[in-house]
Design a protein around this nucleic acid. Sequence first.
DNA 1: AAATATTTGTCCGTATGTATT
DNA 2: TAATACATACGGACAAATATT
Lengths: 247, 247
Amino acid sequence: MSAKAATGMDRRTGVALWRQIADQIRQGIGAGHFGEGGRLPPETALAERFGVNRHTVRGAIAALVQEGVLRAEQGRGTFVEKRKRLSYPIARRTRFSEGLRDQAQERRGHLLDHAHEAAEPRVAAALGLDADAPVLRVETMSEADGRPVSRATSWFDAARFEGIAEAIAETGSVTLAYRRHGVEDYFRQSTIVSARHADAVDLAALRLAPGAIVLVAVAVNVDTEGRPIQFSETRFAADRVELAVAE
Amino acid sequence: MSAKAATGMDRRTGVALWRQIADQIRQGIGAGHFGEGGRLPPETALAERFGVNRHTVRGAIAALVQEGVLRAEQGRGTFVEKRKRLSYPIARRTRFSEGLRDQAQERRGHLLDHAHEAAEPRVAAALGLDADAPVLRVETMSEADGRPVSRATSWFDAARFEGIAEAIAETGSVTLAYRRHGVEDYFRQSTIVSARHADAVDLAALRLAPGAIVLVAVAVNVDTEGRPIQFSETRFAADRVELAVAE
DNA sequence: AAATATTTGTCCGTATGTATT
DNA sequence: TAATACATACGGACAAATATT
């Protein structure tokens, strides 16, 4: 059995060898194979292990250095840049900033865009509105310690929450924006979690490398009377975040 | 701005254009952009939309036909082979088979492998055992309607659950295997959800294409007295499953 | 302090795969 | 189908920085 077959490297998949190797190394780091602040084996050893030329391994390392995952020092070696994943809690009372309070110094939300539109079927169903009812679509992004964490698309009943986009922009907080519209408290009604490759827009907004993965949380928030107030789809950078389900 | 930049196609990413386009089309299908059993736009239209040559689009379509996602009919068009995602519930009382009862005809669990080993730190911590305490590692796989859904690695206290692997093999069910060890009921204590690219072993076991994504659920089950009985890491094929968080 | 080994960085060239025209 | 351009992958040689003896 050849080394290539053994390591799962394949050349007819449309994915370059250096990228497959970069993905394996990134995964190995996540699995803790190189220890805390660990050192990678020399390029020659990695090349032998993966059954490729040293230059190909160098391509993989260069990509991971660019991503900020590795740091290469001439004459010394290649080292893991240690950054731990943020743990984002999903519970009945889910709020962005509070959940990450102990894990990051700075937490910020940005309003990227907003627009009026007619509700798509899934939006109308989630908000309990008629099809094509007027809704407000709001695009936001969140950062922790200067690193993009998530990007969300939210829909609100336009009749009830006119001007909420401006309130989010001013306060940088959905919770505070709700207050201005008479919602003192709210709850998470449902959350559906899936995962996929990031699309071009999210890649740019979250500053991710091509082929990166996003965790997708589709959620409905309700007020204290159980009326739906927000339908949202949030994309989290999967290499920076994990979701902690509270039960 | 060129069409290439507009659609996020790039040539230095290590991912061939035809594969990037295949991924986008697959994602578009998941997002429902082509309707139920829908028809794709003609190749020339897709080529224009993605800013590439028609040959490149044909490569992408050929790959998706090979995957079973699309079906091309000469003279008629290219159509979506529709299969919807299974929704796997995560709740305090999470059980594999029951959760998928209404969504699949056949649900089966397989025991792939099992072994005695010394507990790694995270396993020992989760099960409330001393470091390097003897534990049982069990590798399982689950299928629904003949399609692999998930692959799990579970650890049990070897002192309390000696022989549980054989019980799982016989009954095909963890719940029933627990009964034989005096555990009448159990609960999900915690679940951490993340996502990553599938490694070589999971690719093969779940019959996934290279570069495929897995949803990873790391969970602890406890008995009625709150004692941890199982620590597990389950990898779900992300294109076949979503996780529904019950609250 | 000096010589040697190790490791990353850069340059050359060649062959093959990918994408466009 | 063919011609062309660029990206990928390989192989070798050497330079530069660091570590070891």
